[in-house]
């Protein structure tokens, strides 16, 4: 009968690992400038999936130690669950596409969904390492638990920096652009953008309330990322999401010098916020091509 119950040590290992794994998920769930997930239900869903991921990571070592090798196969369930999180995010964001000011775009949605999947792996791996540390250190249980917590924190820091991507501000300068309208055509810093301003109202609105930023790549090869349609769409989406969009939003690339224009008529007139939000727009993983550009940042600088 006694063998059917977990020992106090095993329970301590599992509980500590689950708590640290879940806290890791909560820590990286912070609400950022992208405002996603910014709703209580969104938080709850991701905390619960993070808890499940941590629980799966936490019980793996006690299962192996108990020679229960069959139980370890449930790790495949974990992988399936993480894939489902990614799928859920993708579907959810795709469903919202028609209700936003502009499209996020498939590339950006894919990036966000991948991020959510990887964050569950962080909870899983953290819990796994906490559990492993507590189990293998041959000292007093409380000392082992403290060591496990320290290792858990170190693992979270490492993984957080490892998965941290770059943003447009890391590879380009973002400056305010000067708007000009000539014969129903819109120009920003001399770059032709659109000729959809055919009415007096449109011209007046854009002249009075239009705002524009121009992205100048630091190196010529950064144009590979910045010229990508999905990347420009993501930057435009973030701009409209942060400042609102009264009417008109355009993005245009300049073939000669590689400049990229983001322009719109926002609800909130704040050029500094527009520059900041474009700078902080993440570089999409799907646009990464060059190794020299996209060297993974292990130190988190």
């Amino acid at each position: 009968m006694e063998g059917q119950f977990l020992s106090f040590e095993d329970i301590s290992v599992i509980i500590t690992a689950v708590i640290i794994g879940t806290l890791a998920r909560i820590w990286i769930l912070k609400e950022d400038y992208r405002q996603y997930p910014s709703y209580p239900n969104g938080y709850l869903i991701h905390i619960i999936t993070g808890f499940v991921a941590a629980a799966l990571g936490a019980v793996a070592i006690p299962a192996i130690m108990g020679k229960n090798f069959v139980a370890v196969t449930f790790l495949t369930v974990a992988l399936q669950q993480f894939r489902d999180v990614r799928k859920m995010e993708k579907e959810s964001l795709s469903d919202l596409e028609n209700t936003e000011y502009t499209y996020r775009g498939k590339a950006y949605i894919d990036g966000i969904a991948k991020t959510f999947e990887s964050r569950n792996y962080i909870a899983f791996i953290t819990a796994f390492f906490v559990s492993l540390t507590i189990t293998i250190i041959p000292l007093n249980l409380w000392v082992n638990i403290i060591a496990g917590i320290v290792v858990g924190i170190a693992v979270v820091f490492f993984l957080k920096n490892f998965t941290k991507g770059k943003s447009i501000g890391d590879i380009a300068q973002v400056k305010e652009g000067k708007i000009e309208i000539k014969d129903s055509s819109l120009f920003v810093d001399g770059i032709y953008v659109s000729n959809l301003l055919g009415t007096d109202n449109a011209e007046k609105l854009f002249k009075e309330e239009g705002m524009a930023v121009v992205i100048y790549p630091n190196e010529n090869h950064f144009r590979i990322n910045l010229d990508n349609f999905g990347q420009r769409q993501a930057a435009l989406f973030e701009a409209t999401r942060a400042l609102g969009n009264k009417r008109y939003h355009f993005t245009r690339k300049d073939y000669e010098q590689g400049r990229v224009v983001i322009t719109l008529v926002p609800i909130k007139q704040d050029i500094d916020a527009l520059i900041e939000v474009v700078k902080k727009c993440p570089l999409l993983e799907s646009t990464k091509k060059s190794h020299s550009v996209m060297k993974t940042n292990l130190k988190g600088e």
Partner: peptide, 15 residues
């Protein structure tokens, strides 16, 4: 005419 149609259709105009 252009402005009226554009307003009714919620469309853009180019000249």
């Amino acid at each position: 005419m252009t402005v009226d149609i554009a307003k009714a259709m919620k469309a853009d105009v180019t000249q």
